[in-house]
Computed example of a mutant assay.
Amino acid sequence: MPEIVFDKVRKSFGAVEVLPPLDLELNDSEFTVLVGPSGCGKSTTLRILAGLETLSGGEIYFDGRPIGGLEPKERDIAMVFQDYALYPHMNIARNMSFALRLAGVSKSEIEEKVTRVAKLLNIDHLLDRKPAELSGGQRQRVAMGRAMVRDAGTFLFDEPLSNLDAKLRAKMRTELAEMRDTIDKNMVYVTHDQVEAMTLGDRIVVMSDGKIQQQGSPEELFKRPVNRFVAGFIGSPTMNFLDGELHTKDGSTWVQGDGYMLPVTGETGQRVSQVATSRNITLGLRPSSIDPDVTAGAPIELHIAVAEYLGAQSVLVTRCGQTEVLAEIASAHRFESGKVRTFGVATDELMIFDRDSGLRL
């Protein structure tokens, strides 16, 4: 499994620069997730790594060896696409073994590899069927199996679950996580779904406009985002953002805005205690930091617009002043639309962002 290094990699399509100089290191045996909104450059990065797009500048290294000029087949990479791309006239066993047969691998070795991978993916009972006889999830497993039988050093996944329904996506996420723990390979996974990223990634690389905003473990990105973009992208429901003014006096720090005044405590309070008073900022408030028990934190009044029942949890769509605020609470608490209620805010979980740069203070 090579260590993969992007060294000032650039990609342009004509006059449009999709990837400005990109520096990134992918460690041995690591499941790395590239995540971001559509058009952020994550799929282009993956296709450049696979050799499906040419470099406009910079270089990619596998264990110190430049591979930017190599053909895809020379890179020891296997790729799983969003589209299953299975041959409809071949059964599953022949679909999975197609690349091995082209490479002239012996029949006994092909049978051993196909059987082993099929058992791992729980599709060994489907090997004699045609793709049309399989469900969407089974076809996706076959597409993964076709890549895995090649025993490549690096596996690339380009939004492989986006064609599946919500229930099947959740099941496949679990299976991918289990597969990740049993296969000692580099895996690079592209998705726009931050839930997939949080569930699967050893390391998440958050991208926007072709640039890396932050990279780290799921917990690090959730608890310590470097800017407003990362804070708003990681976490579901998404973080609330409220404009306000930051004040410090006599060792106390608080934020005041339209319809609220909250003290800032904990690590964030210590970080911003030296910031100039009356500074215009953006307050970041996680929906999970809002509690129906007003004694659980500092009080805030919210006008309830909609209560979305999601089973064990409910999401309240509320307003604080003129700003929409989401609150995630246990469904045992029932609230009527149109009412104004006081909630408690966990002030040690607040985040403060510079309003102009978006950086977390």
Rank of each mutant, 00 (worst) to 15 (best):
N27S: 14
I352T: 10
E245G: 04
Y309W: 12
G36P: 01
K185N: 03
M1I: 05
T248A: 12
S208F: 10
A170T: 14
L168K: 11
I300C: 08
D354R: 12
Q215F: 02
G104S: 10
K171M: 13
R150L: 12
N240L: 11
S135H: 12
P88D: 06
R94G: 00
R203N: 11
S208P: 00
A147H: 02
T115N: 13
S162L: 04
P88T: 05
P292N: 10
V142K: 03
E175R: 07
P88R: 11
V142G: 09
P88M: 04
L359F: 14
E178G: 00
N122G: 07
A103T: 01
S135P: 06
R355Q: 15
R228I: 14
I183C: 03
C320T: 13
T323K: 10
E301S: 12
V18T: 13
A99R: 02
E175Y: 05
A332R: 13
Y84N: 09
N95E: 05
V315P: 01
D151L: 09
K211G: 00
F335A: 11
D23K: 09
D193L: 08
R101W: 02
I92T: 10
V255P: 00
T342C: 04
I300L: 13
I4E: 01
N280Y: 02
G64F: 08
P225F: 07
K73T: 03
G269W: 08
L70S: 10
V142L: 06
L127Q: 05
A298F: 02
A231F: 07
R129T: 07
S106M: 02
V18A: 15
A147T: 05
P225T: 14
L262C: 07
S288E: 15
S29C: 13
Q213K: 13
Y189I: 04
L168S: 07
H192C: 10
S314N: 11
E220R: 09
G266D: 11
R228D: 01
Q213V: 09
S357Q: 14
E53Q: 15
V325T: 06
E301L: 04
L361A: 07
G58Y: 08
E328H: 12
A147I: 03
R141S: 05
R101D: 15
M261K: 10
P263T: 09
S357T: 15
V114T: 08
E178D: 15
S252W: 00
A307W: 03
D184I: 03
F98H: 06
Q274M: 03
T323Y: 04
L55M: 04
D23G: 08
D184C: 07
E25T: 15
V114E: 06
E324V: 14
E219P: 00
Q213F: 01
Q313N: 15
Q213H: 07
K107N: 10
T342E: 12
V272C: 04
A327W: 02
T182H: 09
M96A: 07
N95C: 11
A231N: 08
E17V: 14
I123V: 15
T45Q: 02
T182S: 13
D250R: 11
Y84M: 06
T44R: 00
R319S: 13
L19I: 11
K119N: 05
T174G: 12
F335I: 12
E245T: 14
D151M: 08
I281E: 01
I48F: 00
I92E: 03
G58C: 05
H247G: 02
A170M: 15
